[in-house]
Design a protein around this nucleic acid. Structure first.
Lengths: 217, 217
DNA sequence: TGCACAAGTTGCACCGAGTGCAACGGCCGC
DNA sequence: GCGGCCGTTGCACTCGGTGCAACTTGTGCA
């Protein structure tokens, strides 16, 4: 069901170390955020906790905030991964709803937690925003690639007007995702229980549902 | 036509000075961005150009990026201002389209220019994102206040499910706005001519139009 | 008008983010 | 096992950002 589709590429020892280091740094950052709160740790602290030098920390992340945001990035990347597994002729909104349900609850939990933990700090929030926006760009790029290949860019009115359509659609999808998380947080605060997360998933599906049926307030 | 609706409040000398200083700093920042490019100036430079001390700069803006983002903020605030002048029973999407046409082209020009100038720098882009997001929050708060007052929160299914609806709607509107600017930039680059800006306004209206008719790709 | 107070500005000192550079140490191919 | 490559580290430096205390300027009041 989870359909991880992990490619069995053999990693060299070096690459393996890099991945491990990156993960150690990221988890150290999250752990410090959990315990010390929003402004309670420095890049030094993260480096020490991860067992690397301060300089090495900056070789992996451009800032402490970026390390935290990597978790949001990772979750959204998994959703994209699932999204691209859906049939190409399926409407995007439907595909998105399926993709959202296909991602494991564990990943959703870290998304929810990091969102909750970053609320209240301006810079952390900005990096969260950036993560969502990167997600937009990636989806637009992927779908744009799909559309460009098969029919030479001039099919179904996809050329000039379609560019705006695509951007508006995808960005709206992301917007609804963020809206769902926001509403969830307003209701449940930092509650990461399974029941609460189920509500969050429900809200995510509903938000996309609103986009499917249209807004006519 | 422009309906500026400026309140004729008499400002004291102190407040007048503050406004002037703030404006001097912001314009100095924009000017430096124009001439020196994305990473070509420091907080010191801005302060000197504005004729204040470095410390005073930070009394007005939390960072150089914030000073630049103030222009985007200002434009979006003007749109909100127009939005709230529309009749309350008008659908939000329609109100938004009207509000967008009501704002003067001059303001749209600075929005477009700052967008173009901030592309390529990560931190500047993050502050742009934040400005758009703040706009979401303000609109949601304003409309939420409207809905809460007249009927005691339990009318038209606006209570629990309506919260998600409202957030998803408003955030989608903002998303479409950003999408329009993005598409405009992809096509016109840094061209700020009247013709180009007319195209941008057209794209903004069209993007909201897509939201009105719904997405069924 | 003059005086006392409030509000804004400035300089200073300090900490943390972020980066270029050069030396070091472990993985890799041969 | 050995030379070369890649990642790590320490160092030094710049800039962002802030608390604090002295100073200057606008404001209210007598």
């Amino acid at each position: 069901m989870t359909t991880t589709a992990a490619e069995p590429i053999a990693l060299s020892r070096r690459e393996l170390n890099k991945v491990a280091t990156r993960e150690a740094i990221a988890t150290a950052a999250l752990e410090l955020l959990r315990t010390n709160g929003m402004n309670g740790f420095t890049a030094d602290d993260i480096a020490v906790a991860a067992g690397v030098s301060r300089r090495t920390f900056f070789n992996y992340f451009s800032s402490p905030e970026a390390a935290v945001a990597s978790f949001t990035q990772k979750y959204l990347d998994k959703v994209i991964e699932q999204l691209l597994l859906r049939p190409q002729d399926e409407p995007l909104l439907e595909s998105t709803q399926h993709a959202l349900t296909a991602v494991a609850p564990t990943d959703l939990a870290t998304l929810a937690e990091t969102f909750a933990l970053t609320q209240g700090d301006a810079q952390l929030s900005r990096f969260q925003l950036e993560a969502w926006d990167n997600c937009s760009s990636k989806i637009i790029a992927a779908i744009g690639r799909r559309l460009a290949l098969p029919e030479g860019e001039a099919a179904g009115g996809s050329d000039a007007n379609g560019e705006l359509y695509l951007h508006a659609l995808v960005q709206s999808v992301i917007a609804c995702g963020r809206a769902a998380v926001e509403v969830w947080f307003r209701r449940h605060g930092a509650d990461i229980s399974a029941a609460s997360l189920a509500q969050l998933r429900e809200l995510l599906i509903s938000a996309i549902g609103h986009l499917r049926t249209g807004f006519h307030s």
